[in-house]
Design a protein around this nucleic acid. Structure first.
Lengths: 291, 291
DNA sequence: CAGTGGTCTAGACCACCAA
DNA sequence: TGGTGGTCTAGACCACTGC
């Protein structure tokens, strides 16, 4: 175990390695990686030979995955960049390529990285088309999905109201950034967004920066503020337009709008954004696949 | 190749096996499965030694997956039942356990099948709670998600209107079954569904059968009609309640409702159901996770 | 205890890509 | 041509379940 990084060693396998470990494969030469495998099979408290199989068992590849995730989070490999090859990672972590592969498989399934055969494995980014439309599900009845023009109405720092604070897992009154904007799709005001961001993560965010930025807002957040949105959870309802929304979206007061309340999370499932969107769904619809 | 099932042999690998094939593993004893591996690597038209690597390349595990899917579709293993163990399947298809595993991995990811450690791999069924809520995303503001009481208003056979026919990939005028029903959640009419089913697949479906059935409608379809819903695609909008909906859902005319247009697919991505639901979202919301 | 899925390794070969 | 991910195999051992 001494060969593994401190983070792994210290957190997961406090005990020493087992004794009669048969090495897999040919069965003749005792390979060093066998120790890693043994270590992976018995961790948690009280790792004695006859202890219960440890309630907090975690397979090796999960630990490797956690280590890779940490490197992603720390910015060792930035969005769009290639991460080390499977062989390199295998030798770095002193495990087999297959184990690294399984770790990366899961990261790819979670869209944290993307594999490209013959090229390498790359950190995903909100600049890519594929990723963009994972977070914008509004599709026009006619024509291709596209990104509308953003018109920022407001961007200011304020103290978090109780409800927002609860969703962001901070205290009421903590600093947040509030943005209000309208999205135009082919000339029609279609989306009215009200956004709250964790103040600590978005120091220096201004309406100007938002306005100057061409492209998805999440791409700006990732490039300029090092905060990457990994997943989000939405609650969707049909609501009547109030006066403000009606005016900004050019629809009659009381007409049906799609209300989309989103909480977005970054690494470690930490919430960093709350967003309330009102969508006009006469010429667009919200696309969702159940599978 | 002669050892593989006819379906695989005929469809995928018309050519003979390669010559200088090194067997994997120790490198001494020539194992028979090597032929399967070789065959897997060169299929499609014109499999000569120097032909281009075949544009329709498909890995072995994908073929195994297709074979397993076929058995699921044919009813060889029914919903809720256990499928043969990985070792059994490996020996049936003359491939290694690892290849079967990878095939099953994908089937599990698509929710066609569920693995249970120590027990086996089971065909998923709409009776299970986990599966139920994959297709019912309406969650109450307070309390746990649950299935409401269904009140069938109507169930009749008719000729498909053009729009429905288009979505079901049949001809206008072909036979379909139409169902209209209301779902009650804790005493409140919350969902008004209008459902069209492929006539050919649902002979003998009556309002009585629907009313007698306790549980998810898809469970009835799977158990009584052998039609299993695998995935669905939904288009969501906010719409005003018309007179009919307003009356059945006890809301004012014009009040906002969530309109959910769903097309459901069975094996082979064949559409078998079109559904238009109107949801009252004052005390419930539609839950969606972006990841 | 036997059987099942789950993890890990080692090694070979293939497909794809870029230089 | 070399490097990368992708496929396939073989075999060992572990964790979980139920008899």
């Amino acid at each position: 175990m001494s060969s593994l990084p401190t983070s792994l060693t210290g957190a997961a396998a406090p005990g020493a390695q087992e004794s009669g470990a048969a090495t897999p494969g040919a069965g003749t030469q005792p390979l060093s990686p066998a120790t890693a495998q043994q270590a992976a099979s018995q961790r948690g408290p009280a790792p004695g030979p006859h202890a219960v199989p440890s309630p907090t068992f975690s397979p090796l590849y999960q630990q490797i995955k956690a280590l890779i995730t940490r490197s992603l989070q720390s910015g060792e490999w930035k969005p769009g960049e290639m991460i080390p090859s499977e062989m390199e990672l295998a030798s770095r972590y002193k495990v087999s390529q297959g184990t690294v592969r399984k770790a990366i498989d899961e990261l790819a399934a979670e869209n944290l990285v993307a594999r490209r055969q013959g090229k390498g494995t790359f950190v995903t980014t909100h600049h890519e088309d594929v990723v963009k439309f994972r977070f914008l599900r509004l599709v026009p009845d006619e024509g291709e999905p596209h990104y509308g023009a953003s018109h920022v109405l407001e961007c200011k720092r304020l103290r978090a109201p109780a409800e927002i604070a609860r969703l962001l897992d901070i205290r009421t009154g903590d600093s947040v950034v509030q943005i209000r904007r309208v999205l135009n799709f082919s000339g029609e005001s279609t989306v009215l967004d009200e956004i709250w961001l964790l103040g600590a993560n978005f120091k220096g965010l201004t309406a100007e920066k938002l306005t100057e930025w061409k492209g998805p807002m999440y791409a700006l957040f990732e490039a300029e503020f090092g905060t990457r949105m990994i997943r989000a959870s939405e609650k969707i309802r049909a609501v009547p337009a109030d006066e403000t929304a009606a005016e900004l979206l050019s629809v009659p007061v009381g007409s049906p709008l799609l209300s989309v309340e989103r909480v977005s999370y970054t690494y470690g499932d930490r919430p960093v954004e709350v967003r309330r969107g009102l969508y006009v769904t006469t010429r667009h619809y919200y696309q969702n696949d159940l599978s």
